[in-house]
Amino acid sequence: MKPAPFDYVAPGTLPEALRFLADEEREVKVLAGGQSLVPMLNMRLARPELLVDITRIPELRTLDVEGDGALRIGAGVRQAAVAVDPAVSAGWPLLTEAIGHIGHPQIRNRGTVCGSLVHHDPAAELPTAALALDARFDLSGPAGTRTVDADDFFLSTFLTALEADEIVTSVRFAAQPHRTGWSFEELARRRGDFAAIGVAVLLTRAEAGGVDRARVVFCAAGSRPLRLPEAEDALLAAEGPERLDDAFAAAGAAARARLDPPSDVHADAEWRREAAEILLVRACNRAWERTR
């Protein structure tokens, strides 16, 4: 359980980091918090030849709300810092709630938000929250910068649109509509374990009382975060508060019918489908209570 040998650099600027990543001779990996990468190094599932530690780059260590009201989280920002940030819990409480489900406080003290997103474990909370919140990724590479939407970013298990010579410098979350309620629910065998199944729900209450906008995204249900339009349509069909329970039940039934989750040591597919229905109804109720 010791990493194979590798070289290590901790550049102080982004251009310097990009120069290291452009190395064509060696396999290069970015190191941020290391809470996913170091276990893989220890188990020798990953054997990079050069690690580029980006946590010493000052411009990546900032979290701010930009002029257009969007939240920007730099690649060096730790999960624990985001979880206690009052601007985040006021404007993007789904993010705060999702981070609370990640591992343990001792992990969140080191792990970064962008690191978890780039690692893209399909059972992880942050990719699911990012898709629900329509996150946008800022990428820097030798050819310059580009922005990628969350839906195009997550490709498959441990695979994203990020090229080997690029760095995610930050992730941005647009301001959420007024009267939006949120819920992140998951089931795991023990506190802090990866979710056996989980769901992020955002509901926006219409002035007339129904649902204006709905987002339903599952984690651990496939090889990437899975948005479920059938469940969202069922929620949008809610005609006023008196029919909400029917709409929530219809969304849950849609999830059970439409999801095709894997069977593995944590749970089989049928268990996941049943749990998905129950979790989604629970999450809808909680999100609705929080619409304001």
């Binding site: 290590y8 290391g34 809470q35 170091v38 276990p39 220890n42 001792q106 992990i107």
Partner: peptide, 27 residues
């Protein structure tokens, strides 16, 4: 466990508890 599960190796880095088995000394 040496992969971040058990917490036996927890130490304080700048006052915060972290897994020393998931932290490189050089970092």
């Amino acid at each position: 466990c040496e992969h971040g599960v058990c917490g036996a190796c927890t130490v304080l880095v700048d006052g915060e508890p972290v897994r020393s088995c998931l932290t490189l000394a050089v970092a």
